[in-house]
């Protein structure tokens, strides 16, 4: 059984989420948004954290490409 690498999916999803949030944080944050979150640009900071998470998973997948045991013999059915 061949499994695709889950780390790349995590990297993809959070990369996308992170970039969208950073763009909102930089470009589309209103004073009202800031007031709601006690003056913190939470979209920006959360976006940056997600981009970092994405990069960590992408780097891990690049450096250690093997993910699941793909060459295992099928187990004997009981």
């Amino acid at each position: 059984m061949r499994l695709f690498d889950l780390r790349l999916i995590i990297a993809f999803l959070f990369g996308l989420y992170g970039v969208v949030l950073v763009v909102i944080g930089f470009g589309f944050t209103t004073d009202e948004d800031l007031k709601k979150a006690e003056g913190v640009n939470i979209n920006l900071w959360a976006g940056i954290a997600m981009v970092v998470l994405s990069a960590v998973f992408a780097a891990w997948a690049m450096l250690r490409p093997q993910f699941a045991d793909t060459d295992k013999q099928p187990l004997k059915e009981l």
Partner: peptide, 29 residues
Amino acid sequence: IYFVVVLGIGVMARRSVSSSLDFLLSGRS
């Protein structure tokens, strides 16, 4: 976006399922 990714995982995982053990216990891998 999240649900597209979730359904995409289902579609991709289907390709790797070739026995009942794969389906029910992920081939122990």
